[in-house]
């Protein structure tokens, strides 16, 4: 086993374990913290694929900003294990069955997708994930979708301000 493989298995185990802990934790604050651990593990995978920019942006945006907002909401609403509404056991069972079906569909889709078959991930030597190449691709080949998505963000911001305004 090479160092890359060891890191891959370690990160995968960490990601899956943390993801399970997100679901199992009774305390919502613990769930959020485990979710942050998941993001860290995923960022580790990005680094293994030499997509450093994506890795760090994943951390800054998801772990650094969005999860802080989650924590804000949970702390201000003072959710905790005691006040959490208890679901009926049949509800839980139905959730597990439908979730399992969805997972099966996803797995079979990924396995059969032509984009995925007979492809190997570029470990360490692919450099499309480096910021220089990514920037060139974004601002030349994909400039129209990029600009349109920025307009989308702007409209979301304006909407948030309008909703947040007093009166």
């Amino acid at each position: 086993m090479s160092t890359t493989e060891i890191l891959f298995f370690f990160l995968s185990a960490l990601a899956i374990f943390s993801a399970i802990m997100v679901l199992v934790s009774k305390n919502p604050v613990h769930s959020v913290l485990w979710l942050i651990a998941v993001f860290f593990a995923i960022s580790g995978h990005y680094i293994l694929l030499n997509a450093q920019f994506l890795a760090i942006v994943n951390l800054i945006v998801y772990a650094g900003a969005i999860m802080v907002l989650f924590l804000f909401v949970i702390m201000l609403m003072n959710l905790n294990a005691e006040t959490e509404p208890q679901k009926h056991v049949w509800m839980k069972l139905a959730g597990a069955v439908s979730g399992g079906c969805f997972l099966m569909v996803l797995v079979s889709l990924v396995r059969q997708a032509t984009d995925m078959q007979h492809k190997t991930a570029l470990m360490k030597d692919g450099n499309i994930g480096l910021i220089k190449n990514l920037g060139k691709a974004l601002f030349s080949d994909y400039v129209v979708p990029f600009e349109i998505s920025s307009v989308l963000f702007l409209s979301a911001m304006v909407g948030a301000v309008v909703i947040g305004k007093k009166e």
Binding site: Q52, F53, I56, V57, L59, I60, A63, G64, A65, V68, L130, I131, K132
Partner: peptide
């Protein structure tokens, strides 16, 4: 690393 300063921002947000 070639994203040095972004790394600092990531750590600061942690």
């Amino acid at each position: 690393i070639n994203i040095g300063i972004l790394y600092v921002f990531g750590v600061v947000s942690m």
